[in-house]
């Protein structure tokens, strides 16, 4: 039997999302159609989504498989890491080092980027952002946070 894995995976994801919301909605008061509680509307939507997912799965069962294509694992890792690192460090390290980290991590996401490019990008982007955001727009964030203090020359 022909099976289109892509369609099945798509339907399965919808069903999984629906299930997650439905389970969480169980803890909320449902109310009735006339006096809806906080759980009513999400539960109704989750059921609709699950039904859609199911139809997509069923339709995928009789179809020829379609290629999904390669996944850039290195890019995936680095690109998803960059915002996390920024979020975790922006208050502690301060805006400038945090931006430098993001720029470096992001550049390295490309399989074609070498250390030289990463260094150049980091320097250039950080300088640009500091000028535009800190001095130009006056964003109220410290350029260097408390974690950076030990590494800086004392005044």
């Amino acid at each position: 039997m022909k099976v289109d894995t892509r369609e099945i995976a798509c339907g399965a994801i919808f069903i999984a999302i629906a299930a997650a919301f439905a389970i969480a909605a169980l803890d909320l008061p449902m109310g009735s159609a006339l006096r809806m509680g906080p759980g009513y509307f999400p539960m109704a939507l989750a059921l609709i989504l699950a039904a859609l997912g199911l139809i997509i799965v069923i339709k995928g069962l009789g179809r020829a498989p379609s290629p999904i294509g390669g996944v850039p694992w290195r890019g995936l890792l680095f690109i998803l890491l960059a915002p996390l690192v920024f979020g975790l460090t922006v208050r502690g390290l301060g805006l400038a080092p945090s931006m430098a980290l993001v720029a470096a991590i992001a550049t390295l996401a490309s399989a074609r980027a070498g250390m030289k490019l990463a260094a150049a990008m980091t320097l250039g982007l950080t300088l640009f952002c500091v000028l535009v955001f800190s001095y130009g727009l006056g964003l109220p964030y410290a350029l260097f946070g408390p974690w950076s203090a030990p590494f800086l020359p004392g005044v």
């Binding site: 690109i79 960059a82 915002p83 996390l84 920024f86 979020g87 975790l88 922006v90 208050r91 805006l95 931006m99 993001v102 720029a103 992001a106 550049t107 996401a109 490309s110 990008m121 982007l125 952002c129 955001f133 964003l139 109220p140 964030y141």
Partner: peptide, 23 residues
């Protein structure tokens, strides 16, 4: 794309000054 990503991080952060939004 590294430039895009860096700007995006700052842009998101300026909305609520909140690290959670970056996650």
């Amino acid at each position: 794309f590294p430039a895009i990503l860096t700007f995006c991080c700052i842009g998101v952060y300026t909305v609520n000054s909140n690290a959670f939004d970056l996650f």
